[in-house]
Simulated assay, not measured.
Amino acid sequence: MTTVDLLDPALVDDPYPLLVTWRAAGPVLRATDGRWVATTHAAVSATLRHRALGRIWTDWQPAEQMEPFNTLHRNQLMENEPPEHTRMRRLLAGAFAKGHVERMRPRIETLADALLDELDPTGPVDVLAAYAEPMPVYVIADLLGVPREDHVRLRDWSQAIVHMYEQGVDEATRESAVRASADFADYVRGVVELRRAQPGEDLVNDLIAERDGGSGFSEEELIATVVLLLNAGHEASVNTFGNGLHALLRHPDQLARVTTGEVTPATALEELIRFDAPLQLFERTATAQVEIAGVTVAKGETVACLMGSANRDAAVFGADPATGADAFDVARDPNPHVGFGLGRHFCLGAPLARVELEITLRRLLERFPDIALAGAPPRRPTWVLRGLAALQVTVGPAGR
């Protein structure tokens, strides 16, 4: 059996050639660290949907040192299974059901236009720093009812925390994540206290008020939920937009299909999510012995789902060089990517993410249909959360 090295440096620059090799070797393989690795769309889907494969949080050690980081994760939706997960998901869904996604749509349109007004049409501009990075933080800030001017702190805390999701993190990363977790939790605690004293019409207010069978979020769950919303919303949105726009600009024929109206931005967005996945690996742990693709996974063993590999599986997306799994086709439909997960941990924020990303992409291409790459972009030195460090473009004169 082929052994998978999840620390292979080739995964950072371009994981896809290696993923082809791993898929060919089998749907479920062993990693050098002992984990199982699901490589195909079928194996990843089966793992994500299986009720006996869940998110089982294990505290980072030493626990006393790591407690601020551990507390945030121990009490959040994504790291729990039923019955806690069921209760928290119902509470969060109930708060979102108050019309927050539709409430945000006109705000996102206005925000996109304001950020695009600031782009310099005369020279190269980093569209990530100027447009894609502030957008999701502003959106989440508005959604939660916190000041937009705090976006730099919120972004920095978020990035420090999510760096812990990489493979083989060092001591400096751990220390930074602990500090960020403590500072972020204190900040959110202050927001919650303010909203209890001065109720508003934002999501934090509804999270405080939401009840399920008479009980709501505990204090630590409420804080962890707000932190999760920003971390997941920011990192996924920035990396999806950056990776996707980069792919679009490297394929001028596909870009033209969107700018001319042949393909809608909403349809193209699904291909942007699929083609270069912002989340490459997501884990599940067996709560009982299960079988995935003919492989027996013992209770307590972990399966690492390779999301980017699933999204490039020719068995699902085809082998035709022009339209298949490794082709970038903005009109692809159906497009059963696993970008938002599957099963009980399917991303609850997917509707908001789709609205935000569709508006962000659509307004950029409407305003600057002649946008083009201004050089090869540098990648972040990570691969689980795959993204660009910068994306220099020329936008040209404004269009519509």
Results as ranks from 00 to 15, higher is better:
Q198A: 12
A390S: 02
D117Q: 03
P321V: 07
G396R: 00
E356L: 12
S181W: 12
G318P: 15
V101E: 02
R49I: 14
D326W: 11
F340D: 14
V227M: 15
I371V: 09
F346N: 06
D150K: 10
H251L: 10
V303W: 03
P265V: 07
F241R: 02
A314P: 08
G244V: 03
A38K: 13
V226M: 06
V146N: 01
V316K: 05
L6M: 08
D186C: 09
G324Q: 08
V178D: 00
L230F: 15
S218M: 05
A232T: 10
D156A: 14
E283M: 10
A232Y: 14
L77D: 05
L48A: 08
L364F: 00
A130C: 15
R153L: 11
D8G: 13
A114F: 07
T323R: 11
D183G: 15
L385H: 14
A327Y: 13
R189I: 14
L18G: 13
R380F: 00
L154V: 12
P121Y: 08
V227W: 11
E102D: 10
R174M: 15
G399I: 01
P397H: 09
G26K: 00
L364D: 00
M88P: 07
Q289V: 13
E366C: 07
F184V: 14
F340W: 13
V258T: 04
D206I: 06
N243C: 06
F317R: 09
H246W: 13
H41N: 15
A298T: 08
G339A: 13
R153Y: 13
L116K: 15
C305L: 03
P15C: 09
E262M: 04
V290S: 00
R90A: 13
E84V: 12
E67K: 07
A350K: 04
V290I: 01
A24Y: 12
V263A: 01
D126S: 01
V125K: 01
L144R: 04
L269E: 02
R274K: 06
A288Q: 07
L228I: 05
V395F: 02
S215W: 11
A129T: 11
E235C: 10
A25K: 10
V330G: 00
A322F: 04
A24M: 04
P377H: 02
R274Y: 03
P27L: 03
V297K: 02
A42D: 14
L229I: 14
E366L: 08
G396M: 04
